[in-house]
């Protein structure tokens, strides 16, 4: 499972794969809002799709969907989550 070790910013992460938030790096107000929404470190998430005109992605975590621009997505660093059944379980 070498793939799970690679940490990438969310804007470069693959679609429709279970991911885990590892760390944040960037504008503090963006980080604050993403955390409040529930994207805390260790949260599992999934990129559902790209925005129809591009420029953004739709992510799903804790049963919530959020649209964000790629620039905002870039503050989140994620790794792939090996076990897809882990999603939503506590």
């Amino acid at each position: 499972m070498g793939q799970t070790e690679i940490e990438v910013p969310l804007n470069r992460a693959p679609l429709r794969r279970q991911l885990v938030v590892r760390r944040y790096e960037g504008e503090s107000s963006v980080i604050e809002r993403l955390c409040e929404l529930g994207l805390t470190i260790g949260t599992q998430l999934l990129i559902r799709r790209r925005a129809p005109l591009g420029g953004g992605i739709e992510v799903e975590f804790r049963g919530v969907r959020v649209g964000l621009r790629l620039r905002e997505a870039a503050v989140l660093y994620v790794t792939a989550c090996g076990d897809s059944n882990a999603y939503r379980s506590s």
Partner: peptide, 10 residues
Amino acid sequence: AKAPFILELP
């Protein structure tokens, strides 16, 4: 600077 765009899709 471009303001962040983070929008919940209910």
